[in-house]
Write a protein that binds this DNA or RNA. Structure first.
Length: 483
DNA sequence: TTTTGAGTTGTTCGA
DNA sequence: GTCGAACAACTCAAA
């Protein structure tokens, strides 16, 4: 292949096709493209940076994610110096066309392990090979490539804890740096194509700072000020105790390997208190969850829609096509179920395109167990509004709540929306922030306006269902399919 | 092969 | 208010 032959040397550039890896640091595929990884033939090689706006992904993405993606692309474009090639269309046509135009023989990507991405890449690979070019997959958005952690029999793990132990044993490479130790200056090669979509109207939704630099800033901030308290602070939705890295990770603005390396370095510090050490461990475990769910999706590409535990597909659920079911689903979506913690969460979703994880579980449990709506409806709604919407984490998080997930669900896993609120938002700060109708209530009454004389004075809606009754109903319906 | 222990995030009740 | 036990039965992992 012309671009690969060390004896002749050649000017053939390589294409790096960005997808969920919108960064320049710690980017194995980019290093491979530029020939700076010390393995991929002679370097340095000119690199044509490409992003393809694929209608199949762009369409279903929802405004917050489209906006995040565009802003992240602009940040990447700036970092590159303005040469990012952006084209719209089917990658199976767009990528080979660009390769032909610039005379490249290699296209470098980070592997995509999602169901659509795998199919798309196989198609693109075939199309490229027809033209005599290669698709080279290097690295992935995960520390350990999905599908590669196996048990002694070569089977995938189905339970998180054993997976995480094996994942840890498996280990991962250090953050990728150029083989020559340089700062990784890439020779970017311009090519025509600046077909940027216009940014969608976000209404009132505000996104945080987007892009690789912002991701690193946030990470450093969390590493220095947040991670030591993470174990307890992460449970308080009114306070910024979580990393807020989910969307940055979603777009690959920072790689989990970078986080893991910094955490390992932090753990070296003998001065770390026992509780901080535990917090660091808890945060690492959250990264492991992200990897676990990606692994599960790799083995079960249909799990975004299909029950991992098929038994639960036979359960009685309420119809949401019309009538009461439709009304209740809408009340949930719009944050007016009459349960303050649930409504605050759903309104945070609309306002910030993000929800605290504790609250995600509570609102999900409410939809499935109190309103008896199939989890897929909730999962789809989340995906349409979340800025960090990740198919693997979202689908499996919902399945976990619904009881159809990878772990054998205790039948009693039904969140109480009132006590959860009182436990994790004892002062009601979170509720008051998102539900102005309850701004006059303090403490536990913010979670139970029916206990306050003036609870409904400012237009807060009555409860759409009675939790205690629906809990019993949910357990009864479960009993019908589990015996 | 068989056996044993464990399994993210909960709730309620009674002492 | 706090604490421990009970709450199905099952699947998975590992010895």
């Amino acid at each position: 292949m012309p671009g690969d032959d060390p004896s002749t040397g050649t000017d053939a550039p390589a294409v790096v096709w960005f997808r969920r890896d919108l960064r320049l640091a710690d980017h194995p595929a980019l290093l491979a493209a530029s020939g700076s990884d010390g393995r991929s033939g002679p370097g340095p090689r000119d690199v044509v940076p490409l992003f393809v706006v694929d209608p199949a992904l762009w369409g279903p993405s929802g405004e917050p994610r489209r906006a995040w993606l565009l802003r992240s692309l602009h940040a990447l474009d700036d970092a590159i110096g303005g040469g990012l090639v952006v084209r719209q269309g089917d990658p199976a046509e767009v990528v080979p066309a660009l390769v032909h135009e610039v005379g490249a023989t290699q296209v470098h990507v980070s592997a995509d392990s999602g169901p659509y991405g795998r199919r798309r890449d196989d198609t693109v690979l075939a199309a490229l090979e027809t033209g005599g070019a290669r698709l080279v997959r290097t690295g992935s958005p995960y520390a350990v490539g999905p599908g590669s952690v196996r048990n002694g029999s070569g089977e995938p793990y189905k339970v998180f804890t054993p997976f995480s132990r094996a994942w840890l044993r498996h280990g991962w490479p250090a953050p990728a740096a150029p083989a020559d130790g340089s700062a990784g200056r890439v020779r970017w090669s311009p090519a025509p194509g600046r077909d940027w979509p216009t940014e969608p109207d976000l209404g009132g939704t505000e996104l945080p700072e987007v892009g690789e630099a912002a991701a690193h800033t946030r990470w450093q901030e969390f590493l220095q000020e947040g991670v030591g308290e993470y174990g307890t602070a992460r449970e308080v939705p009114a306070r910024p105790g979580t990393s807020s890295l989910s969307a940055h990770l979603r777009y690959g603005e920072i790689h989990p390997r970078t986080l893991l390396a910094d955490l390992a370095a932090l753990a070296q510090d003998d001065g770390l208190s026992a509780s901080s050490r535990e917090s660091v461990e808890t945060f690492r475990s959250e990264i492991a969850w992200r990897e676990f769910y990606a692994d599960v999706l790799w083995h079960h590409p249909g799990s975004a829609r299909e029950y991992l535990r098929p038994q639960l597909a036979g359960m009685r659920y309420d119809d949401v096509g019309s009538g009461v079911g439709a009304d209740r689903l809408r009340a949930w979506q719009e944050g007016r179920t009459g349960y303050p913690f649930v409504d605050a969460g759903m309104r945070q979703l609309r306002e910030e395109a993000w929800v605290h994880n504790r609250v995600r579980m509570v609102v999900a449990s409410f939809l499935v167990k109190d309103l008896h709506v199939e989890w897929q409806h909730g999962a789809r709604f989340f995906m349409s509004l979340l800025r960090d919407g990740d198919l693997a984490s979202n689908s499996h998080g919902w399945q976990w709540v619904a009881g159809s997930g990878t772990d054998a669900a205790p039948y009693f896993r039904v969140f109480n929306p009132v006590t959860q609120g009182q436990k994790f938002d004892p002062d009601g700060d979170y509720v008051r922030r998102y539900v102005p109708e309850l701004a006059h209530l303090r403490g536990r009454k913010a979670h139970a306006p029916w206990e306050a004389d003036d609870g409904y004075d400012h237009g807060y809606p009555e409860r759409v269902v009675d939790h205690a009754a629906e809990r019993v109903e949910a357990l009864a319906r479960l009993g019908e399919v589990t015996g």
